[in-house]
Design a protein around this nucleic acid. Structure first.
Length: 267
DNA sequence: CTAAAATCCTGGTGGC
DNA sequence: TGCCACCAGGATTTTA
């Protein structure tokens, strides 16, 4: 379940090995994950050089020569590794990008939800995303205005990538706990003070998660430590670290939602 | 506009 | 031990 912190950690891990490299070939084992015409990917990508690695929300953006960008979304179970071409690929490697130095960028994804795009205009992929929650232009003031522009409950909104980019189920629940706001609250019911708390919580939670290299669950993602700092996510029927009340789990927006009924007031 | 449900997928789990 | 129903979960699509 890679969210913004996991994608950012992945970006930082891959960057030194990828920048300056040139793609030589692509091996596609699960064509449905390729959102660009497969023939175009196979013919265009070889020869393109990697210039930089960026991130937008949960998308990894590999900037290439000739103004192309390879966009990758890890969705639920995607992982990216760089391995020598001579190393036999794991069973779940769906796409392998060969590099001129004899290694491969391998997209491993057991659940096959991951997506690959090769575009000249990245807005085709990320153009409708909401603001970057850690960006300089995402301020308390702009968040307040954003909150006034939308209706609905907080949990579904935080998961909506057009509202804010990069937040998923884990960091939505953790942010709402830190802001001491119930996930089922209507956004229109928030006081200015609560909006401010939520803004600070989102920034702090994501920032700390990046510092800890993200969350590792079910070995899907390497080296993360944020799972050791969960306050509510996955802690159903365990005592709140703040007040000892039992953490509750409900379903909102069709997603498991964890909260402390004492610390997070519903009104 | 919001919202709920269905869809895509498979590894892991719990029940028996 | 084996079988199977069920579930998680990001984002899109469909339906209300």
């Amino acid at each position: 379940m890679p969210e913004l912190p996991e994608v950012e950690t992945t970006r930082r891990r891959l960057e030194p090995d990828l920048v300056g490299q040139t793609f030589t070939a692509v091996t596609i084992r699960w064509p449905r994950s390729i959102m660009t015409p497969v023939a175009a990917l196979l013919t265009i990508l070889p020869g393109l050089k990697i210039e930089s690695l960026d991130r937008r929300g949960k998308y990894l953006l590999i900037r290439l020569s000739q103004n192309f960008t390879l966009c990758l979304h890890l969705k639920m179970s995607g992982q990216l590794t760089i391995e020598p071409t001579s190393t036999p690929p794991h069973h779940h490697v769906r796409t392998a990008f060969s590099l001129a130095n004899g290694s491969e960028l391998r997209f491993r994804d057991s659940r096959k939800f991951g997506r690959v795009y090769l575009v000249e205009n990245v807005d085709e992929v990320v153009g409708t995303l909401g603001p970057e929650p850690l960006g300089h232009d995402f301020t308390a003031k702009s968040f307040l205005a954003l909150c006034h522009s939308r209706k609905g409950r907080l949990k579904p909104l935080l998961l909506d990538q057009h509202f804010i980019a990069g937040i998923g189920n884990i960091y939505a629940d953790e942010s709402l706990f830190q802001a001491r706001i119930h996930p089922g609250r209507a956004i229109s019911s928030l006081s200015t003070r609560e909006v401010s708390r939520l803004y600070q919580a989102i920034r702090h939670v994501l920032d700390q998660a990046i510092t800890l290299n993200g969350t590792t669950l079910d070995d899907v993602y390497p080296d993360g430590a944020y799972q050791n700092h969960f306050q509510v996510y996955g802690r159903r029927d365990q005592p709140c670290h703040s007040c000892q009340s039992m953490i509750q789990r409900i379903v909102l927006a069709g997603r498991s939602t964890h909260f402390c009924p004492h610390c997070q007031k519903s009104t």
